[in-house]
Design a protein around this nucleic acid. Sequence first.
DNA 1: CTGTTAGCGCGTTCAA
DNA 2: TTGAACGCGCTAACAG
Lengths: 344, 344
Amino acid sequence: MEQDRPSRTRTETTMFDIAKLAGVSEATVSRALSGSPLIAEKTRMRVLQIARSANYHVNINARSLRQKRTRSIEVLIPLATRGRQHMSAPFYLDMLGALSDALSDQGYDLLLTKKAPWLDGVEKNSIQCGRADGIIIMGQGQDLEALQRFASMYPQIVVWGGHLPDHNYVVVGTDNVSGGMMATEHLIDVGRKVVGFVGDPAEPEIALRLEGYKRALAAAGRKVDDGIIFDAPFDGREARAAAERIIAGGVNFDALFCASDVIAMSTMTALRRAGFSVPDDVAIVGYDDIRMAANFDPALTTISQQIERGGVTMVELLLKLIDGGNAQTTLLPPELIVRESSIG
Amino acid sequence: MEQDRPSRTRTETTMFDIAKLAGVSEATVSRALSGSPLIAEKTRMRVLQIARSANYHVNINARSLRQKRTRSIEVLIPLATRGRQHMSAPFYLDMLGALSDALSDQGYDLLLTKKAPWLDGVEKNSIQCGRADGIIIMGQGQDLEALQRFASMYPQIVVWGGHLPDHNYVVVGTDNVSGGMMATEHLIDVGRKVVGFVGDPAEPEIALRLEGYKRALAAAGRKVDDGIIFDAPFDGREARAAAERIIAGGVNFDALFCASDVIAMSTMTALRRAGFSVPDDVAIVGYDDIRMAANFDPALTTISQQIERGGVTMVELLLKLIDGGNAQTTLLPPELIVRESSIG
DNA sequence: CTGTTAGCGCGTTCAA
DNA sequence: TTGAACGCGCTAACAG
């Protein structure tokens, strides 16, 4: 009935085999391996010993089917499919590492998917297929309504993103308004007179950073000048070209708050090529604190998001939701990392 | 017996429900949904219609258990757990994107794991647990024997890495020797007199690039000078410090072939800070062609690895192995991308 | 503490 | 072309 695949020589050993070897029932083997208290320590040791020497491993599918729980979590990352990259790809990838650690610490597997599920309606969603117990979504994306619809059907989700009014899902993220304020205040504090902004506010998190920027200006008694708010949408590849366009339009600013480190680095490169010095002519602050930021020249002043803590928090809240508990949207405090690109 | 978790209101609909709704047997529903030819087209349409409107999805665990096939592949990435990062992290992450696309094109899911399994012996290996049908391992790591042992137990693996003699597993990778030669020849061609090397040959791929470097020097009739082969092991964070140490030791070279783009960028930054110009004083060639390479200042000359094609190839070969077929180790040709860091 | 029993949801045989 | 029956490998309930 089942033909062995040619490449697989060994027959799968099953719990039945171990039970026979140990002279006990399958149930006892199951209990021994799952750490149940309902078993004599002596029996457990013997079964464990036999299982190990037979190189036996519990079949995960059977276990998941039986328990109706997969112990795996799907992580959705908004990396574009070919070529084009999300502006904050390095940040998301660092976060992926943090999530991998946090999930593995909790005994969960990580199922990685690049597509945003709400783009396809609810088809192929891994919770309903019984493939995952919950979903972590990196970034709210640009169709907030679709995300709301999705969340209303599948409550076991946690979203990394910005704290918007009236969302029906749990959000974990940095306090972007506060981060935007910190960056802008810092540029004002170091004596800059005309502080511009670079970023695409179509992304909710970026819009909040822009809001922080405006508030900081207002608090300093300065006028918001739309002429130096550069909101042309662009991804990582286009960042450099966009920066060049900005410069070509005239450098009528002496500081820029860039809404991501990738934008900041591209802008710095474009500025230097155009003959401007960073930070002498233009001071720069980025956002994210990606690994490269500290090694750039000049080292990039930026707003750090607590990646590791963010990953741990998302996992913690999601597991709470899966257990039927409540979870609160959580904003982590951003931190200003002063390096060289803003002082001097 | 099974208590519903509080958070899950809706009862899971099963194939039985669809069968009842459609007035057919479960077997018929199964056939309709799996595209079996053993079914009347009219019946299939009706069942499909009903399944869709009931928002029904086949339970993946039950299917996997029955078919002994999970349609998912585990991908192992050598990202360090906390803090320290692998030298070529950006490259591996781009490759992860390519793998995700390639697997999804073939209808496979991607299970992401950071740990190398052979470090733990064969425990927790996802093939044996029935969680994945095969494994893609990014990088051979430094314990080649352990990898060999692992491969001998689980033939369904494909490894990204260097083509070493006598490996018992399928390798996909760039021809690193040839890549190393191209980089070095290029530096010689642009007139550089003293070409050094930076990289840690404990990593097999790096060792092969170093081999290419040496061959190119020999072919040009030059002596290999160990004094300018800098092989201190370091990861992304330490790259900058290492570069500073190299410079502090005296810049008795006018070109460096850096075994990764991350190393190259850190080295360029360190050189510039020490008052040297790139490429005027020291020409630089990197390896990987990560996204940032083109946007650096100066834009980085580098050896491009065909990431997308590499991902597709690995998936293709692995699926062949899983089907019981044969697969050959495959080396893809590297390509020299000339930018600014090496000419001028 | 242990064994027996039942069934998770599905795909595949075999018989009709 | 369809249905009935079975079992994939495991764990939870129940009885002892």
